[in-house]
Simulated assay, not measured.
Amino acid sequence: MDARIVCLVPSITELVCDLGLADQLVGRTGFCIHPWDTVRQIPKVGGTKDVKLDRVRALAPTHAIVNVDENTRETADALREFIPQVIVTHPCAPRDNLDLYRTLGAAFDRRIEAERLCDAFETAYAEAAAAAQRRPERRVLYLIWREPWMTISRDTYISQTLALFGWHTVPADSTDRYPEIDVAAHAGHVDHVLLSSEPYHFKDHHIPEVAAAVPGARVALIDGEMTSWYGSRAITGLRYLQRYVDEDARSADLPDSRRRRDVLR
Score class of each variant (00 low, 15 high):
M1H: 08
D2Y: 02
D2T: 07
A3E: 14
V9P: 04
P10E: 06
T13K: 00
L15W: 03
L15K: 01
V16A: 01
C17A: 13
C17I: 05
G20R: 02
L21Q: 08
D23Y: 05
R28W: 06
C32E: 04
H34S: 10
W36I: 11
T38F: 05
I42M: 03
P43Q: 13
K49D: 11
K52E: 15
L53Q: 09
V56Y: 03
R57W: 07
A60F: 03
T62E: 01
T62K: 05
H63N: 09
V66C: 02
V68I: 08
N71G: 05
N71C: 03
N71Q: 07
R73S: 15
A76T: 15
D77E: 15
A78N: 11
I83E: 02
P84V: 12
P84S: 14
Q85E: 15
H90S: 14
H90A: 15
C92V: 13
A93M: 06
N97R: 00
Y101V: 00
R102W: 05
T103C: 12
A106E: 15
D109N: 10
I112T: 10
A114V: 03
C118S: 14
E122D: 14
A124F: 00
A124M: 00
A126M: 07
A129E: 15
A130Y: 00
A130E: 12
A131H: 02
A132L: 00
Q133P: 07
R134A: 15
P136F: 00
R139Y: 12
V140E: 02
V140P: 11
L141P: 07
W149S: 13
M150N: 11
M150W: 10
I152V: 15
S153P: 01
T156N: 07
S159D: 07
Q160E: 13
T161Q: 12
L162S: 02
L164V: 12
W167D: 06
W167F: 13
T169P: 00
A172R: 10
S174R: 10
R177M: 13
Y178P: 09
I181L: 09
V183F: 04
A184V: 10
G188M: 03
V193C: 09
V193P: 08
S197G: 15
P199N: 05
H201Q: 12
H205W: 09
H206W: 06
I207P: 07
P208L: 03
A211I: 04
A213P: 03
P215M: 00
A217K: 04
V219E: 01
D223A: 06
G224A: 13
G224M: 04
T227S: 14
T227H: 09
S228Q: 15
Y230W: 13
G231H: 01
S232T: 14
A234D: 08
I235S: 10
L238N: 01
Q242F: 04
R243I: 02
Y244T: 11
D246A: 14
E247C: 11
A249I: 12
D253M: 09
S257E: 15
R258P: 07
R260Q: 14
L264Q: 06
